[in-house]
């Protein structure tokens, strides 16, 4: 599943999405809202996406994971809207026969997400707010 959602992201639900009898390990990564940025106290973060394109790019990442690691059980969710400190903004789960590949593929997926998935983040402080540019570093894929 590759989806932009306005609902909370659950690690358990992510793990269930990729569950597979062939798996010996499931790696789940959650990106969560930190309480500070650039020395300022963060009250919340607001995420905005281009949902259909973001989901298309998430699918491309899953295809890349399949090509590079031979793994086909990948789930990627990214939340949009206003999130409080501690809430998960992004979740990725990868199932693999062995743990090392699960970790490596999961790291690969989040690194790629930061590069090609069109999502932006606004930091909301006690005393103001600022778009920090995309939450992702977007670069053309071709």
């Amino acid at each position: 599943m590759y989806r932009i959602t306005d609902q909370p992201i659950s690690a358990d639900a992510l793990a269930e999405l990729v569950a597979d009898p062939m798996a010996g390990g499931i790696c789940v990564f959650l990106g969560v809202v930190r309480d500070n940025a650039g020395g300022r106290r963060v009250r919340s973060l607001e995420y905005e996406a281009h949902p259909p394109m973001a989901e298309t790019k998430m699918k491309e990442i899953a295809q890349e994971v399949a090509e590079r690691f031979g793994l086909h059980r990948v789930a990627i969710l990214h939340r949009v809207g206003r999130l409080a400190v501690g809430e998960a903004s992004v979740g990725i789960a990868v199932a693999a026969p062995h743990r090392r590949m699960a970790f490596e593929a999961c790291q690969y997926a989040i690194d790629r997400l930061k590069v090609i998935v069109p999502i932006w983040k606004k930091e909301i402080f006690e005393d103001g707010e600022v778009w920090v540019g995309p939450a992702t570093t977007i670069e053309p894929s071709s």
């Binding site: 281009h50 394109m53 540019g133 670069e139 053309p140 894929s141």
Partner: peptide, 28 residues
């Protein structure tokens, strides 16, 4: 950064009537 449809494109990409062009803010 620019996208037409759901793909990143260069700024020299010709446009056709009815297409959707997206402008993405820069990274900070």
């Amino acid at each position: 950064l620019f996208a037409v449809g759901q793909e990143y494109v260069g700024r020299d990409r010709p446009l056709q009537g009815g297409e959707e062009v997206c402008f993405f803010p820069p990274v900070s």
